[in-house]
């Protein structure tokens, strides 16, 4: 009986979906729009976070010391810097290590290697590589190094080149954190409300039908389930349509969010997220459909 009820009500829901015409189109488009807005917000924050993470992993402040500075002075600079609460890690790179790294990096280029070996003394400088706990703090760290007692030993501080990128991500992420959560909640609510109302309208259209079903002896489940299944089908259709639309939309939107330089990196990572986003849309869409139908039909089920 349960299986019969399920297959019969599923079939009825399926028929309703295709026989309802314009209301079906309205319900699916509204749900699609809601899913799309929610996923665009989600995707923007995911990609901004990914972009930031990528840049964060790359960026650091490199403090180069003049070649006559003693190794122990550099070490004491390092241990002092490590005490800053903004600093996550500080790595000492000796002249020799720098040379080894340089050789490794240029392994395929014999003329460069020859030129380096031709110089008697190691031409490279010792440095300290500093990573901040938080990308916003590079400015502060750089300033305090510039003003520290070591300033006369320092040949150069290298971090400017990342500053723009960091600033960009920082401001994007700040706005997203602030507005994203708000928009996400707002649009989820709007989506629920609209879907609820569209489904209520379709059920209202079925008002006499529900009345008839009751009088002919249909149980509440037999009346309710077709609408629930109809909601499920709305959700599935909306998820499929919105994932198809999401790809081109993101292609247009992401460059504005993360800057075109990083689009390549983000998009490769992004395709991995697509399956996840689709599943999320499917779940959200189907749940929206189900919850809206159950809420909308409740008042028609009093015997």
């Amino acid at each position: 009986m349960i299986i019969l009820t399920l297959t019969r009500t599923f079939k009825a829901g399926f028929q309703n979906f295709f026989r309802n015409g314009s209301l079906t189109v309205a319900a699916v488009s509204i749900l699609t729009l809601a899913l799309l807005i929610i996923s665009v917000i989600l995707v923007i924050s995911i990609s901004a976070n990914m972009g930031l993470k990528y840049v964060q992993d790359k960026i650091d402040i490199r403090v180069y010391f003049k070649s006559d500075v003693a190794e122990q002075d550099v070490m004491s600079f390092r241990s002092e810097v490590q005490k800053y609460k903004e600093v996550k890690a500080a790595e000492y790179i000796s002249k020799n290590k720098a040379l080894d790294d340089f050789k490794a990096a240029n392994a395929g280029k014999p003329d460069i290697l020859k030129a380096v070996e031709a110089v008697e003394e190691n031409p490279l400088l010792a440095s300290v590589n500093i990573k901040a706990a938080n990308p916003e703090q590079y400015d502060v760290i750089a300033k305090s190094i510039e003003n520290s007692s070591y300033r006369n030993d320092i040949a150069s501080i290298n971090y400017q080149q990342y500053k723009l990128v960091i600033d960009r991500f920082n401001s994007t992420i700040k706005t997203i954190r602030k507005t994203g959560a708000f928009l996400f909640i707002l649009f989820s609510l709007i989506a629920i409300l609209i879907t609820f109302n569209v489904i209520r309208m379709t059920i209202f259209n079925h008002g006499t039908e529900i009345e008839i079903m009751r009088l002919v002896g249909a149980s509440n489940n037999f009346i309710r389930l077709p609408f629930v299944f109809e909601g499920v089908i709305y959700g599935i259709f909306a998820a499929v349509i919105s994932i198809i639309l999401l790809f081109p939309i993101m292609k247009i939107v992401t460059p504005y969010v993360v800057g075109s330089a990083y689009i390549q990196i983000i998009q490769t990572d992004f395709t991995r997220y697509f399956v996840l986003i689709f599943l999320a849309q499917l779940v959200v869409g189907v749940l929206l459909g189900i919850v809206s139908s159950i809420l909308a039909i409740r008042r028609y089920l009093k015997v």
């Binding site: 028929q15 309703n16 026989r19 006499t208 039908e209 009345e211 008839i212 079903m213 009751r214 009088l215 002919v216 002896g217 249909a218 149980s219 509440n220 037999f222 009093k302 015997v303």
Partner: peptide, 24 residues
């Protein structure tokens, strides 16, 4: 009880004055 009402109605075959056919 409300949940047994469908069972009651299934014992009866009703021809309604206004037919009450399902339009869809």
């Amino acid at each position: 009880k409300p949940k047994d009402m469908p069972l009651h109605r299934r014992r009866i075959g009703t021809v309604f004055q206004d037919f009450k056919l399902l339009q869809k």
